[in-house]
Computed example of a mutant assay.
Amino acid sequence: MKRFEYLSVRVMVLLAAALCIHLFLIAGLLFLAFLGNAPFWPAILSLVLLVVLLWWFYAMILKPYLHMERTMRLFLDGYTTADLTHLCQTAPTPMVYQMLAHMMKIMDSSELLKLNKRQAQYLALQNQINPHFLYNTLESIRSEALIAGLTGVADMTEALAAFFRYTISKVENLVSVEEELENCQTYFRIQQYRFGSRLSLTIECDPEEREEIYGCRLPKLTMQPILENSIIHGTECKIGTGHLTIHLERSGKRLLIRISDDGVGMDEEVLSRMNERLGRSGQAFASQGSETRGGIALVNVNNRIHLLFGEEYGLHVFSMPGVGTDVEINLPAIANDRELKNKEALK
């Protein structure tokens, strides 16, 4: 049978056979004791020994093995930044220990972060060509528009230059929530020239917590790609006006940001696939070629959050067809870059 190709199956079969033989011997000893041909104590001692051996096998072998299996299953599902240290503590052989130690070194989150930063920089390079040339050209267009009295064109050009300057420069840095919101408002201002009064944006934040929330740090380009998705895949496809909301709040040591739209929404199957991709963000490097919605993929944003802060943070999407979509961003509420979990991000 194909199952017998696995060493674990062979060991379990051998163990089951040994258990059956031991139980057969105990039954034989008990039978002889009941007939009066032998004392009871050998059977009782064998039974106690069997219980002790089974307990030892469960505690020292089976339980660590099952724990290792669960962790490896998570790893295969894409949780590449999970702590695999305990796997080395329960490795079946010295060679497997060396293999796991090498794997941990390869899959170290700081190394993944460097790859992710290079990917983000590459995406930016694709768009920038020569940033100074771009800024100078946009400034020239703005000047010509002002001279011609085209204030609308001048304002739009100014907003576009500000947006590109923020997007292209130092994409690996953390920024304040206030800076990220300003970039979102700049992007929305550009979109308003296209949609006019069809589109509106509201930013909600408790005034008493505003200063503290606006000072929190988060990865650059966390909100804007989601806002872009909300416009392109939500409100743009809707007949009539569309409203977007960015809601910010603190919950203990967490910063919760919810970007909502009242657009067309998505059905249960599409929503499930979206959240599955976000849940398996450790595999984002393999799929970034197809995930380009919003300029920088949601899965890439989610993956950077995982690598910087841990897999307990990230994105989750809620949606109903015809009602709209909410994207919730879960982040640690940190006000200083020194509080960053993975300090390799700042090197």
Results as ranks from 00 to 15, higher is better:
Glu5Leu: 14
Val9Pro: 02
Arg10Glu: 00
Leu15Tyr: 04
Ala16Thr: 07
Ala18Ser: 03
Leu23Glu: 00
Ala27Ser: 05
Gly28Ile: 02
Leu29Lys: 04
Leu29Ala: 05
Phe31Lys: 08
Phe31Asp: 07
Leu32Asn: 08
Leu32Val: 05
Ala33Met: 03
Asn37Tyr: 13
Ala38Ile: 09
Pro39Arg: 08
Pro39Thr: 09
Leu50Ile: 03
Trp55Gln: 07
Trp56Lys: 07
Trp56Gln: 08
Phe57Ile: 02
Ile61Thr: 04
Ile61Ser: 02
Leu62Glu: 03
Pro64Ala: 02
Leu66Ser: 06
Glu69Arg: 14
Thr71Gly: 06
Thr71Gln: 11
Thr71Ser: 09
Tyr79Thr: 07
Thr80Gln: 10
Thr81Asp: 13
Asp83Ile: 05
Asp83Cys: 07
Leu84Arg: 10
Cys88Pro: 03
Cys88Lys: 13
Gln89Pro: 06
Pro92Ala: 11
Pro92Met: 07
Thr93Leu: 14
Pro94Glu: 09
Val96Trp: 15
Leu100Ile: 15
Leu100Val: 15
His102Lys: 15
Met107Ile: 05
Leu112Gly: 11
Leu113Gln: 13
Asn116Pro: 06
Lys117Glu: 12
Arg118Glu: 12
Arg118Met: 13
Leu123Gln: 12
Asn127Trp: 09
Gln128Ala: 09
Gln128Tyr: 09
Pro131His: 05
His132Ser: 10
His132Arg: 10
Phe133Leu: 10
Phe133Asp: 06
Phe133Gln: 09
Thr137Asn: 04
Leu138Ala: 03
Leu138Trp: 00
Glu139Met: 02
Ser143Ile: 01
Ser143Met: 04
Ile147Gln: 05
Gly152Ile: 00
Val153Phe: 00
Thr157Gln: 00
Ala162Leu: 08
Phe163Gln: 08
Tyr166Lys: 03
Glu172Arg: 14
Cys184Val: 11
Cys184Asn: 04
Gln185Glu: 15
Phe188Thr: 02
Phe188Trp: 06
Arg189Thr: 13
Arg189Ile: 05
Gln191Phe: 06
Gly196Ile: 01
Gly196Leu: 06
Arg198Ser: 11
Asp206Asn: 13
Asp206Pro: 00
Glu208Gly: 03
Tyr214Ser: 01
Gly215Met: 01
Cys216Ser: 07
Arg217Val: 02
Leu221Phe: 12
Met223Thr: 08
Asn229Ser: 05
Ile231Ser: 07
Gly234Glu: 02
Thr235Val: 15
Glu236Asn: 13
Gly240Met: 04
Thr241Tyr: 12
His247Glu: 14
His247Pro: 06
His247Lys: 14
Leu248His: 10
Arg250Tyr: 03
Leu255Asn: 04
Ile257Gly: 01
Ile257Cys: 15
Ile259Pro: 04
Asp262Phe: 10
Asp262Trp: 09
Val264Phe: 04
Glu269Trp: 08
Glu269Arg: 14
Val270Asp: 10
Met274Ala: 14
Asn275Trp: 00
Glu276Leu: 04
Arg280Asn: 10
Gly282Trp: 00
Ala284Cys: 13
Ala286Gln: 15
Ser287Gly: 11
Ser287His: 13
Gly289Asp: 12
Ala297Ser: 15
Leu298Ala: 11
Arg304Gln: 11
His306Val: 05
His306Phe: 11
Leu307Cys: 07
Leu307Ala: 05
Glu312Pro: 01
Glu312Phe: 03
Leu315Lys: 06
His316Pro: 00
Ser319Lys: 00
Ser319Pro: 01
Pro321Glu: 12
Ile329Cys: 10
Ile329Trp: 06
Asn330Asp: 14
Ala333Glu: 02
Asn336Ser: 12
Asp337Val: 12
Glu339Leu: 08
Glu339Ala: 13
Asn342Val: 10
Lys343Glu: 12
Leu346Gly: 12
Lys347Ile: 10
